[in-house]
Every structure is written in structure tokens, then in C-alpha cells.
Amino acid sequence: MAEELVLDTAIRDWVLIPLSVVMVLIGILRYFVSKLMRSSQVPDVKIVKEGQVIVRARNLRAAANFIPAKSFRARRFYYSNEENGLLFVPKGQSQNAQAQMFSDPNMAMDMMKKNLSMIIPQTLTFAWVNFFFSGFVAAKIPFPLTQRFRSMLQNGIDLSTVDVSYVSSRSWYFLNLFGLRGLFSLILGEENATDDTQRMMQMSGFGVDPTKSLGAEKDGLDIVQHDWALPKFEQRAESVLRKLVH
């Protein structure tokens, strides 16, 4: 068992606390900056309509058996005929999201703004932490942990003999970066918390091609076998009534 490391109280006063305070302040600042830069974007008519078409077509597919066969066939034709069906996407017209982004400078601009408010402060603070606080053992967790946590808690210290419950300053930065969400939602209100992890998810989700989902919906609709459920209902109604009468 290695001997206990004694952490200088000056480390607490000059590393641990300033780091946490700065992280909180930066989070709040970023919230206000992104609020300033946020522009209300007007969605494209086509995109809104496509979303609605997909919902309606999905309803049709799910509940096809509840309407008469004639009505179903009429609707299917309406959605997926090869001339002007709602779900039919002519070949070549399906522009992908990438191309759309280049053709619409507003979209690129928006992405830029989002990125700026996220990446610039992050790189700056990371550089700042690295420059001033690298190599400190900043805190100790009051319970022992397994070796697996070493990479999470002792980022920046390449010593395998240090007990895992010690936290390096850089790791403290990361813990703050991802762990302050609860505090932000307290300070800024429930929905306003800037959640980095969620935003990263959004970023990676960008670039879904809406025309692809239209095509998929059309294929799904084409193979639906219509089997009218209502005749069965008649028999079931009979049994329900029989129970009620007797």
C-alpha cells in the first residue's frame, strides 16, 4: 500500500476551487452568448410537409385494416403512384443533405454559430487548464476505486503507483465539463442547461436524408397486404352483446 499523499491546502485554494468556478462561469457565459447568436430559423415548407406525409403514411400502414379496401387502395395510389404520388421521389431529384447545406449559406452559417459557441470556449479552457494546472493532483475521492478508473480520474499523470482515488487537475476539468449540467439547470432553469453531450449527439445526427425515409415509407406501403378487420369485428360484437344480454 502506497503511503498517503498529503495534498497542500494551497492546491485546494488555487487549483480545485478556481477551476470549478471558472467552469461554472464559462458555462453561464456560453449560455448567454449562444442565446444572443441564436437566430430563429424558418424551416423549409418542403421539409415540414415531408415530415407530415411520413406520419400520415405511417398511420395508413399501421391502421390499414380498419378502413374498407376501396379506401385503402385509393390512398395507397395517392401516396405511391409513379407520377405525382406524395411519397414518390423522382430519381436524381433527391439531393442529399450535404449538397443542400452548400446551396443554403444560412444553414452553414447556423452550424458555424453553433460550433463556435461550443468548440472555442472548450478549446480555450482546455488549453488554459493544460498550461497552468497540468500535473497537479487536485483532489482525493474518499473511497477506493478500481484500476479501470485510472484513465478517467488521472488523466495527465502517468504514474501507475498513485492510488486511483486521487484526481488529477485535468480530469477534474473533464468531470466538471460533463458533470455540471445539474448545476446549470438549477441556475439557468430547467430547459436552458447547455448539455454538451446532447449537442454532440445532435451534431452527429445531422445529415439524415429526408428523401430516403420517404422512399422507405413508400416501399413499406407497397407491400402492405390489406385485410379488412371489420368483418371480424362483427362476430366479436355479437359475442360481446351475447354476454351483455345473458
Binding site: P68, L230, P231, F233, E234, R236, A237, E238, V240, L241, K243, L244
Partner: peptide, 16 residues
Amino acid sequence: QTAKKYYASTIQLTGG
């Protein structure tokens, strides 16, 4: 005929 079927389904869905 269709109307009757839908009345029947209403009976079934509401339990008569």
C-alpha cells in the same frame, strides 16, 4: 353493409 360493420366495431370497442 359497411356502416353496419362499423356500428358493430363501435359496439365491440365500447363493450356494447
